[in-house]
Computed example of a mutant assay.
Amino acid sequence: MTAPRLDLDNLTVTRSGRTPLAGVSLSVGPGEFVGLIGPNGAGKTTLMRAALGLIPSTGRSSLAALPPAARAAQAGWMPQAREIAWPVTVEMLVMLGRTPHLPPGGHPGAHDRAAVDRALERMDLTTLRRRRATELSGGEQARVLIARLLAQDTPLVLADEPTSGLDPAHQITAMQTFAGLAAEGRAVVASLHDLGLAARHCTRLVLLEAGRVAADGPPAAVLTTENLARVFGITAHFAQTPDGPVFQPLGVLA
């Protein structure tokens, strides 16, 4: 697997006279787990979709510049939408993550089945593998979609609110899994609303405000009192403890 890297240069999106993303430049390299944070409408989803070439933009994205087949082999994508429309088994849905690695008309082999098995195990889905995905709860479906992303086995991983709808145990498991991918040398970018999870598991945070980068760095350098007050309008407690960083929002500023 080649060393992953995502490079964005002056990435801008304009829609109906509005600019939801304005001149964003950043690079994400191997071993980084980058949390995209910011209030609703800050541009987190727009940034990832533009980086993937899914919506029109100006500027440059190293990922969007790739041909579609190469892009699918380079980057896995988990969108915010969680709806599963087809009544296929969990195992079959996760196997769809292997599609970019199969030749035209090819069938999954032992390597693909092993990748699916690993993904199911990582997301605590082994006992559900024969169930129809449409029969699962919303949280279980979210875990299935994360497993499909893991089965794709790409050097770059982008996920839009991957912990939304998960119970606390599976939120932590998902974040530990993404952190583990980064520790293996991959590059991971995830948009997150839970600042506590972001502070605890991400190696780096990119704070967006009105489509622009307001802060970029280690969690302690981004989740400052000033940034939290200006961008989110909140107060919070952030401490380094023997068990790792702990972040807790406390109140809304008047």
Rank of each mutant, 00 (worst) to 15 (best):
T46L: 00
I37N: 00
L63S: 02
P103Q: 05
R71Q: 11
G31Q: 03
A81L: 14
P104W: 12
L36Q: 03
M48H: 01
L54Y: 06
Q80W: 12
P68H: 09
A72Y: 03
E83V: 13
M78E: 00
M95Q: 12
P103V: 11
V94I: 14
H107C: 09
E83I: 14
R98T: 09
M92Y: 11
R60W: 11
L102I: 04
V34T: 01
G59M: 08
I55R: 06
A85L: 15
E32G: 01
P103D: 08
G105Y: 09
I55W: 06
G59W: 06
R98L: 02
A81D: 15
L96K: 07
G76V: 08
L54P: 02
P56Q: 09
R82H: 15
P56A: 05
S62Y: 11
S61Q: 11
G53D: 09
K44W: 07
H107I: 10
G31W: 02
G35C: 05
S57R: 09
L93M: 12
Q74Y: 12
W77P: 01
A75E: 02
M92S: 15
H101S: 05
L96Q: 13
G41A: 12
A50Q: 05
L52Y: 05
V94L: 07
G105N: 09
P39V: 09
H107F: 13
M48N: 05
A64V: 13
A75H: 01
R71I: 07
S62T: 13
I84A: 06
G76M: 01
S57A: 15
S57C: 13
S57Y: 14
L96R: 05
N40F: 10
A51Y: 00
V90R: 07
V94Q: 10
A42P: 03
R98F: 08
E91S: 11
K44E: 04
I37K: 01
L47V: 04
L52E: 04
A75F: 10
G59P: 07
R71C: 06
I55A: 04
I55L: 14
A81F: 12
A73S: 10
A72M: 03
W77F: 14
G53V: 10
M92L: 15
M48V: 15
S57N: 08
V88D: 10
R60E: 13
V88Q: 08
M48W: 04
P68D: 12
G38W: 00
W86I: 11
K44M: 03
L52C: 10
G97F: 00
A70S: 14
G41W: 12
A73P: 00
P79A: 11
L66H: 11
G97M: 03
S62D: 02
